[in-house]
Design a protein around this nucleic acid. Sequence first.
DNA 1: TTGCTTATTGAGAATAATACTTATTAAGGA
DNA 2: TCCTTAATAAGTATTATTCTCAATAAGCAA
Lengths: 151, 151
Amino acid sequence: MTAYTATALKSELNERGWRLTPQRETILQIFQDLPKGNHLSAEDLHNLLQAEGHAISLSTIYRTLKLMARMGILRELELAEGHKHYEINQPSPHHHHHLICVKCNKTIEFKNDAILKTGTRTAQKEGYHLLDCQLMIHAICPACQRSLLPM
Amino acid sequence: MTAYTATALKSELNERGWRLTPQRETILQIFQDLPKGNHLSAEDLHNLLQAEGHAISLSTIYRTLKLMARMGILRELELAEGHKHYEINQPSPHHHHHLICVKCNKTIEFKNDAILKTGTRTAQKEGYHLLDCQLMIHAICPACQRSLLPM
DNA sequence: TTGCTTATTGAGAATAATACTTATTAAGGA
DNA sequence: TCCTTAATAAGTATTATTCTCAATAAGCAA
Ligand SMILES: [Mn+2]
Ligand SMILES: [Mn+2]
Ligand SMILES: [Zn+2]
Ligand SMILES: [Zn+2]
């Protein structure tokens, strides 16, 4: 519920000897403002930033996405073949999962608090520090079931 | 519980106008025989096949892995950066999920029947044909939490 | 069993997402 | 304000995966 602020990001970065840069702040903001149900690839983010007048290099985008995923701020999703998608990682009650058509990539989000609880408990039991917990349901959507296209 | 046979594979393939080849049969057998908890990348599979005297080309391996994943026979897992891993897709009570350290890729399997039920119900509700249902818990293992290495 | 159609294979080339390299810039702390 | 060094930008390199195409063989029908 409480938005993750640039100040909080700065603290977490500085704790580890890292730095808050305008690029990192801008990218965090993009994800905070992203409408629910949207997921960005590295290239999507690059384009979006350019459209808003921020010229952040692709290198920095890739580095930042990985960094924020490793920090648990973003979640890395395999919603399509060949490239990753990212969205902000929010706790319950915004936390959700994905039902994906493997043929056309149509994605439906759904919530289930029990799953996050299971994930939290499982990580804790093994002494792991939880970053993200995502149920991926791979399936074929109604339209693609009807399609006669191969595969 | 009941092993998925080459005959069953042949039926499913022929129904769609596709064919059972020795290569496909061999690859299915490899996964059937794979010890529990093992996951193979395309290259792992290629090496394993060569060691057993089967010279199946990498092209065929990639095609077959994707085909069997799309059929729901194999499950495609993101257990490490940069390449996919595969394992046989088994129903309850063998069905399981993965807790993964994003730093060293140490992976722990765990079972939870409620999750598969949720996945089945969610897919059904939306009219999707279920292929696979996997909870991925991304986390940092105890050893890596202690490590001072960056990222 | 034989022959035909066409899905599949193997080899190599092409693609594309991501990581790496290095000179330059600038964040954070003293 | 200065210094150390993390981070950036641009370009290059890497590499998993896909594509292309000629040769092969699975499945089917006669
Ligand atoms: Mn989402
Ligand atoms: Mn497994
Ligand atoms: Zn679809
Ligand atoms: Zn680890």
